[in-house]
Amino acid sequence: MGKSVLFIIVVFIMIMAGGDVSGNDVNADSLFNSAGVKYENRQYASALSDYLKIGQSGYKSAPLYYNIGNCYFKESELGYAVLYYLRAQRLDPTDDDISGNLEFVRQFMPVTLEGVKINPFITFMDSIVSPFTLNRLAWISSILFILFVLFLCAVIYFQFDGIFVRSVGYILVIVLLVSSVMTTYKYRTDYMTVRGVVVAAEAGVYSGPGEDHDFEFNGAAGLIFEIERAEGGYYLVIFENKRKGWINKENVEII
């Protein structure tokens, strides 16, 4: 009886969490391995094709995106390399290889953004949020919330009191607040804000949605931006130096 209840709970959690109970597809694994061999033999285009095939069949993982980024870099496609490293980083922000490669390839960006102002709050938030995925933060804040509620229930029901109980209470409240703020910030920056990367070697940025508007400056592969809105075939974007402009959708990819 107990085991069947446990089984039902486990299945329920997996379904609710939308987890993938099956293992990796055999073809995807073998394709991944063969792509690795091709990469080793410096057949970067062929390796890239195999990795992309895995991605096109719906699979995603941080190592897959990381390897795609490597192939693109070796093929001198800087914009796509940055794009896939960022996609990999979203899935696994703790991987130093991803952030290392991202930093490395961005050194080859042919255009420099002048006047990038660093917001200390955003920098601080980014530094504490970056090691976590949004799902991990959501789990942490949920578990903390459950612990906090159980603690409150115990305090109320059993009428616990004293300096220790109060200290535990305050700590739990603070930790819960911090995790909730981090979750909200991560959700806002990673999912509410649509970000993109310039993938074309050159991409004109205009004052309006079309080439008939004033030309502002030339964007280049690897530049990251936030999308404010879309109109026709153009996005209104904000680059990291807060410069705004309209850019052709064909020259960019959404992260």
Binding site: N24, D25, L134
Partner: peptide, 24 residues
């Protein structure tokens, strides 16, 4: 650039965000 990963990790198909699942 760091060398490619030799294992694909856990290849998943469209795992939804916990925040938007009923479990949350």
């Amino acid at each position: 650039i760091g060398y490619i990963k030799s294992t694909p990790g856990k290849l998943e198909k469209g795992k939804p965000l916990l925040l938007v699942t009923p479990l949350y």
